[in-house]
């Protein structure tokens, strides 16, 4: 059971209130009519599906009903960060690889399979990636 911090409600709620909506930050082509079939197919269907850090869209379906983003590890399932629509993640696969400390982390802690976005969690994720 995930315990997810909704950045709009500003509190932790149980996973059942939320729906996962797949990869985040997919930009709709500015001029769809000018897209080739391949470009449009890539936009609609092709996804990163990484084994590791994943930025994904969730919706607080039976709460505030707002969409927001989660940065999560797809093997440990640790939630590292939640942030509002329009914002950019502060934790990325690259930043962890560089060994940067995450700043301004909105903690998403607790739950059976989720650890908090503490330095220890970030360190453990780095360990898993190494």
């Amino acid at each position: 059971m995930f315990h997810i911090y909704c950045p709009y409600c500003e509190e932790h709620r149980e996973e059942e209130e939320f729906h996962a909506k797949g990869q985040a930050h997919i930009a709709r082509p500015a001029d769809p009519d000018a897209c080739s079939d391949a470009e449009w197919g890539d936009y609609l269907f092709f996804r990163d599906n990484p084994r590791g850090i994943h930025h994904e869209l969730w919706v607080h379906a039976v709460g505030c009903r707002k969409f927001f983003n989660i940065t999560r590890h797809t093997v440990t399932y640790a939630i590292l960060e939640t942030y509002k629509m329009g914002e950019q993640p502060t934790i990325t696969a690259e930043s962890l690889a560089r060994g940067e400390k995450a700043g301004n982390v909105q903690a998403a802690s607790g739950g059976q399979q989720t650890v908090g976005a503490s330095d220890a969690a970030v360190a453990s994720v780095k360990g898993a990636q190494a």
């Binding site: 059971m1 995930f2 149980e14 996973e15 059942e16 729906h19 996962a20 797949g22 990869q23 599906n49 084994r51 994943h54 994904e56 999560r72 797809t74 093997v75 440990t76 399932y77 059976q112 399979q113």
Partner: peptide, 13 residues
């Protein structure tokens, strides 16, 4: 389970 995962486990709900 609705989320992406490689962990060979899912959530209790």
């Amino acid at each position: 389970d609705g989320y992406n995962g490689y962990g060979q486990r899912g959530s209790y709900p």
